[in-house]
C-alpha cells in the first residue's frame, strides 16, 4: 500500500497528497500524522490537496478527523489548495467541513499558522479570519 509522505519544516508538518488515495491510505495518513505530531512536538499541520481532483465524503471526514485529533495534540491544521471544482462539488454534496481551517495556498497557510502563534489566542468558533501577509 502506498503511503503519503509527511515532511517536517520548522514548527510545521507538511503533507502534500499527490495520489488518488484508497480509503486505507487516508486512514493510515490519519494515524501517521498523529504519531508524528507527538514525536516532533510541532504546533502546525498543513495538508496540501491541490493535486486532488475530487474530495468525497470519506476524504472530507478524514480531513476533519485529522484536524480534531491534531487540535487535541495542540497542533493547528490548515487544509490548503482546494480546487474550485472540488469546492463547488462539496457545497452541492452538502459537506461544509466544519472545524477545518483552509487557505488558498501553502504560503497563505503558513502565514495563517504563524499569526495564530503570535496572537496566542485560544481557538474560537468564529468563521476563519483569513490572513494576508503584508508585503
Amino acid at each position: 500500500m502506498e503511503r503519503v509522505p509527511v515532511l517536517k519544516i520548522g514548527d510545521i508538518l507538511l503533507v502534500s497528497i499527490q495520489i488518488d488515495m484508497e480509503d486505507q491510505v487516508a486512514l493510515q495518513l490519519q494515524e501517521d500524522l498523529a504519531e508524528r505530531i507527538v514525536a516532533t512536538g510541532v504546533h502546525g499541520v498543513i495538508i496540501d490537496i491541490s493535486a486532488l481532483d475530487i474530495v468525497d465524503s470519506f476524504v472530507g471526514r478524514t480531513l476533519a478527523t485529522i484536524a480534531s485529533v491534531s487540535r487535541v495534540l495542540d497542533a493547528e491544521t490548515v487544509v490548503v489548495g482546494m480546487r474550485p471544482a472540488v469546492a463547488i462539488t462539496l457545497v452541492e454534496l452538502g459537506l461544509s467541513l466544519p472545524g477545518i481551517r483552509t487557505a488558498l495556498n501553502v504560503e497563505l497557510g503558513i502565514a495563517m499558522l504563524g499569526s495564530r502563534e503570535d496572537d496566542g489566542e485560544p481557538e474560537d468558533d468564529e468563521p476563519d479570519p483569513v490572513v494576508v501577509t503584508e508585503s
Binding site: M82, P84, L90, L97, A103
Partner: peptide, 9 residues
C-alpha cells in the same frame, strides 16, 4: 460557501 471552503472570504 465554496470560497470559504477554499480559504477565501
Amino acid at each position: 460557501v465554496a470560497a470559504r471552503l477554499m480559504g477565501a472570504d
